[in-house]
Every structure is written in structure tokens, then in C-alpha cells.
């Protein structure tokens, strides 16, 4: 553990807070969240709806900025970056996987995977080869020329994972990646994310309701009412406490 402190953490937040004005009232979606995730970790963020985990996800993904507190991504203070710089950071270093896949309809899997590369410097020919390789890694290369409407949920999520991997990111953020899938497909997708983490050392952060999903990870961070209420190895959590909402933390 002493060795860990010496290297720059991939994700480091200090006193992170995010407030929204909702009419007259102010909603404190995230309160004083301090955490650190090192490169190569496989982390689950759990908590009931409205607990702040999605807000944290948006900030970690550089889509949103904290109201107060500091977020450093690989030592870069994201709070000090403008929209374009954050877009470039997302493009180059972060991959997103969504619950609803968010694939462009009537567009082939290959072109969907290519999308992040549109906004990068790679020439068109190399771009296509990279997209094919990403589909290969996600085990869905045989569907390269199919459109999302003709694929199953599991296949669509594999394409979405390929899209997240195509830019060779440092961080993969998955927001309820199995939320729209049956349990068998969920296990396949989780096995894939797990394998990716183990084989390439890719840092994976998964936001989930599902205790089965959380159980696959190495570390579980639990949120409630915008605060971190638990943070520890997944194995330390007794099976009984891992209820769907994760509300009964020890």
C-alpha cells in the first residue's frame, strides 16, 4: 500500500460536491466525496437511485464539473479545463458504456465503433482498421456490417464496448451496463469487462444496482444521499448484505 501512494492515481477526488438548483430548492447530489482509484482497478459504484452515483459518474467522465472540490484525472485538474479540452480528454482517454447502449440507429456496428475516432487525428484508413480490431476484442467482429436494430441486446452492448475501447482509453466508465440485459447476457458482459481489466490493466468503473455485477469487481464504493458510506473490497461484503439496492451497508 505504501508503493501505491508514490504513483499518480488515475482518479483522485477531494471534497467533491455537486449542487443543482431545482426551482427554489437546491439539491445536493454529491457531498464531499473524496476517493482515489488507481490505474488497473476494477471498481463498482453502488447505491440507490438519487444517491449521487450517476452524478459522480458524469464528473469522472468529464461530462460535468463539480460545484466545489477537486477532481484530478491522471494528475490533470479537470475543473480547470474548458469544454474543448474536456472533450479532447474524453476522446483520447475515456470510454463510455451506457445502459441503453446509445448506438446510432441505421448505422453499422463498424461505423458506430469508428465514431470516437472521427474526432481524433487518425487518418480514415487507419481508423477503419482500428474499429475492426476493437470489434474483434469485444468478440463481435462477425456483426461488423449489421445495424443495431438487427442485433440482440448483448450484441449491441458488445458493439458499445468495442466503441469504448477503440480509442485505447485509460478509463472505461460503464453506467448500468447490464441494466437492459438478461442475467445470462449480463454475466457474459461482466466476464468480458473483468477479462479486459485483467488482461490489459484497463481501469474499469461500473455504476450498478445489481449485486451480482458488483460481486465480480475487486472494490465496491457505496453511495447514499450523495455521500460515500462504504468503500472496500467486494469480497469483504457478505452475500446477505448485497441486496439489490445495496441499502443495508454494514
Amino acid at each position: 500500500m505504501t508503493a501505491r501512494a508514490a504513483v499518480t492515481p488515475l482518479i483522485e477526488t477531494v471534497g467533491l460536491s455537486r449542487c443543482y438548483a431545482l426551482g427554489e430548492a437546491t439539491v445536493h447530489a454529491l457531498v464531499d466525496a473524496t476517493l482515489r482509484i488507481d490505474a488497473g482497478e476494477l471498481v463498482a459504484i453502488i447505491g440507490p437511485s438519487g444517491s449521487g452515483k450517476s452524478t459522480l459518474m458524469n464528473i469522472l467522465g468529464c461530462l460535468d464539473r463539480p460545484t466545489s472540490g477537486v477532481y484530478r484525472f491522471d494528475g490533470i485538474d479537470v475543473g480547470g479545463l474548458d469544454g474543448d479540452a474536456r472533450a479532447a480528454l474524453r476522446n483520447r482517454r475515456i470510454g463510455f458504456v451506457f445502459q441503453s447502449f446509445n448506438l446510432l440507429p441505421r448505422t453499422t456496428a463498424l461505423e458506430n465503433v469508428e465514431l470516437p475516432l472521427y474526432y481524433g487525428p487518425l487518418p480514415l484508413g487507419a481508423q477503419r482498421a482500428r474499429a475492426r480490431a476493437a470489434l474483434e476484442r469485444a468478440g463481435i467482429a462477425h456483426r461488423a456490417d449489421h445495424v443495431p436494430g438487427r442485433m440482440s441486446g448483448g450484441e449491441q452492448q458488445r458493439v458499445a464496448i468495442a466503441r469504448a475501447l477503440v480509442g485505447d482509453p485509460d478509463l472505461l466508465l460503464a453506467d448500468e451496463p447490464t441494466g437492459n440485459l438478461d442475467s445470462k447476457t449480463s454475466r457474459e458482459i461482466m466476464a468480458m469487462l473483468h477479462a479486459l481489466n485483467r488482461s490489459t490493466g484497463l481501469t474499469v468503473v461500473i455504476v450498478t444496482h445489481d449485486p451480482e455485477v458488483a460481486a465480480v469487481t475487486d472494490r465496491v464504493i457505496e453511495f447514499r444521499d450523495g455521500r460515500i458510506v462504504a468503500d472496500g473490497p467486494a469480497a469483504a461484503r457478505s452475500p446477505g448484505s448485497a441486496r439489490p439496492t445495496g441499502a443495508d451497508a454494514p
Binding site: G61, A87, N91, Y118
Partner: peptide
């Protein structure tokens, strides 16, 4: 548009 922005499109794109 949201997806394009998430994967790295800048406002000018």
C-alpha cells in the same frame, strides 16, 4: 448529439 459529445466531439464539430 449527446453521444457524439460524450465520445469527444467539440462544440465546433
Amino acid at each position: 448529439i449527446g453521444l457524439r459529445m460524450a465520445v469527444g466531439a467539440k462544440a465546433r464539430h
